[in-house]
């Protein structure tokens, strides 16, 4: 569904991504793990068009067997329209907008009024707290509630591919478990998920496949279980002496 081919990204004088290649298959949950500064967020921002790669291609096939597009030439809004939602690091809800408005902004490109109100209703069923706080400024929500809002907002676009950057960041373990259970549910319902996580234990437990990113290039890949059992990964990312 999504293939990053030999991506190079430069930020100023820094060579951030050095020939990164990876693939996300339709229906999969794929995790990208790695240390701080390895280039995880840069990878996601390259997919969603906020960063233009210096070279390489981001090949995306929205429909099985359908035409392929190179996202590296498209503006972010075109990429959103192609069915990719990116839930950014640190949640980034629009804190001065109301909860409801945040959700509406998430469905910004849609014009089907009934569909939008149906999905608004679905968000409220998924997270009843959002209905209660519908008219409050999103900035007044707790961290966990903001994460729920950020995910619900991303879903308002009805994404085929959902990109999540550090969904566990700064959240209490109970909330993290809830968010991860929800990701699994969304995936079971047909959404492909590509996520970046610091929390490698959770990520490898959830993901069908995973990649390990080091200094801008993929150094390891495999199924979630394989990587979780790999001694090098255990030492570097899972915090256990194997």
């Amino acid at each position: 569904m999504l293939r990053l081919e030999d991506i190079h990204v430069h930020r100023g004088r820094t060579h951030v991504l050095k020939g990164l290649t990876l693939a996300v298959g339709r229906g999969e949950i794929v995790a990208l793990i790695g240390a701080n500064g390895a280039g995880k967020t840069t990878t996601l921002r390259t997919v969603s068009g906020l960063i233009r790669p210096t070279s390489g291609a981001v090949v995306y096939q929205p429909e099985p067997g359908g035409p392929q597009v190179d996202l590296s030439r498209l503006a972010p809004e075109k990429i959103v329209a192609a069915g990719i939602s990116h839930c950014p690091e640190g949640r980034q809800v629009f804190s001065s907008l109301s909860v409801r408005e945040n959700l509406l902004v998430g469905g910004y490109l849609r014009r089907d009024k009934e569909g939008i109100s149906r999905d608004l209703e679905r968000s409220f069923e998924l997270f009843p707290i959002l209905r209660e706080r519908g008219h409050q400024a999103a900035g007044s929500l707790s961290g966990g509630e903001q994460m729920m809002l950020a995910i619900a907002r991303a879903l308002m676009n009805r994404p085929k591919l959902l990109i999540l950057d550090e969904p566990s960041l700064g959240l209490a373990p109970l909330i993290v478990a809830r968010i991860f259970a929800l990701i699994a549910e969304l995936n079971a319902a047909g959404t492909t998920v590509f996520l970046v996580e610091q929390n490698a234990v959770m990520a490898l437990g959830l993901a069908h496949r995973a990649y390990v990113l080091e200094l801008g290039a993929i150094v390891l890949s495999g199924t979630g279980r394989e990587l979780a059992e790999n001694p090098e990964v255990r030492r570097a990312y899972l915090g256990s002496a194997a």
Binding site: E77, F94, R153
Partner: peptide
């Protein structure tokens, strides 16, 4: 209005506004 909402979102966070599909 929808445009006004997009303007407020853009003013608050330009990159995230782009991730929502706002031109």
């Amino acid at each position: 209005t929808r445009l006004g909402m997009a303007m407020r979102a853009t003013a608050e966070n330009l990159d995230t506004a782009r991730l929502m599909g706002i031109d």
